[in-house]
């Protein structure tokens, strides 16, 4: 856990420096009191101190080895990446293709990658999860979902 803690501390310190650099572009103090840069500057400074504190703490006291399942195994990594890529594609295709078709594809992909079911089960769940959910959201909850180029 020591190395992961040290890397985290360095990344956080970098974020703190970035926030401080951005904060100084806003007013620290104005005629009526603290300006827009006051709070971010202090937060950035506090995060920087805490990052250094975390680095020192994990370096001095961390004795736990990295847990064996800290990094996902290949299968787990494939499932995680698939979910994130599927979400990215959904966000990109939602408006051009419409909610129903995009969600149908999203669910088919996830159902096939996360587990193995009979194709009919996959199809049924994907249809309920896309066309069924669209019906609930648009008719019952009055939430407008995008309709795509095919009018679906």
């Amino acid at each position: 856990m020591k190395r992961s803690g040290q890397v985290t501390a360095v990344v956080l310190a970098g974020l703190a420096v970035f926030v401080i650099r951005e904060a100084v572009t806003y007013d620290y103090m104005t005629a009526i009191g603290p300006g827009g840069g006051f709070f971010p500057l202090w937060l950035g400074a506090i995060l920087l101190v805490l990052s250094v504190g975390l680095f020192v703490q994990v370096t001095a006291t961390e004795t736990r080895p990295l847990e064996p399942d800290f990094f996902p195994r290949r299968g787990g990594l494939v499932r995680i990446v698939t979910i994130l890529v599927a979400i990215a594609f959904t966000a990109a295709l939602l408006k051009p293709l419409g909610f129903r078709l995009t969600m149908l594809a999203f669910l088919v992909v996830l159902l096939r990658v996360l587990g193995r079911q009979h194709p009919l089960v996959t199809a049924a769940i994907a249809v309920i999860g896309s066309f069924g959910v669209a019906y609930v959201f648009t008719h019952w909850l009055r939430v407008a979902l995008p309709v795509g180029a095919f009018g679906i």
């Binding site: 979910i83 969600m103 999203f106 159902l111 996360l114 587990g115 089960v121 999860g129 896309s130």
Partner: peptide, 9 residues
């Protein structure tokens, strides 16, 4: 897998 897929949707 079915539950998680639906929740993700």
């Amino acid at each position: 897998p079915i539950l998680f897929s639906l929740i993700l949707g």
